[in-house]
């Protein structure tokens, strides 16, 4: 299956958000995930099925103050 992750083309056999995060070595508790501009609930990571052509964004907290 092919879709976009953070703007990059990505290929995977994983079918859920939880699977994708595991493959990327990302701790789910540390990130937020958006699929096609919709913010996903963490509780849905395990069940939400990703589709071909989806646009996935994975964000986390970085250092920042103002601007």
């Amino acid at each position: 299956m092919k879709f976009k992750v953070n703007g990059e083309d990505y290929r995977t056999e994983r079918k859920t958000i939880a699977g994708l995060l595991e493959e990327l070595n990302i701790i789910p508790e540390r990130v937020a995930v958006e699929v096609n501009l919709k913010v996903m609930k963490r509780a849905d990571f395990k069940d939400y099925r990703l589709n071909e052509g989806d646009s996935v964004e994975i964000v986390y907290f970085v250092g920042g103050g103002q601007y």
Partner: peptide, 12 residues
């Protein structure tokens, strides 16, 4: 305060 940014999936 913290900022929200993309996780770098290529260079983790």
């Amino acid at each position: 305060t913290v900022a929200v940014r993309r996780v770098n999936i290529i260079d983790r």
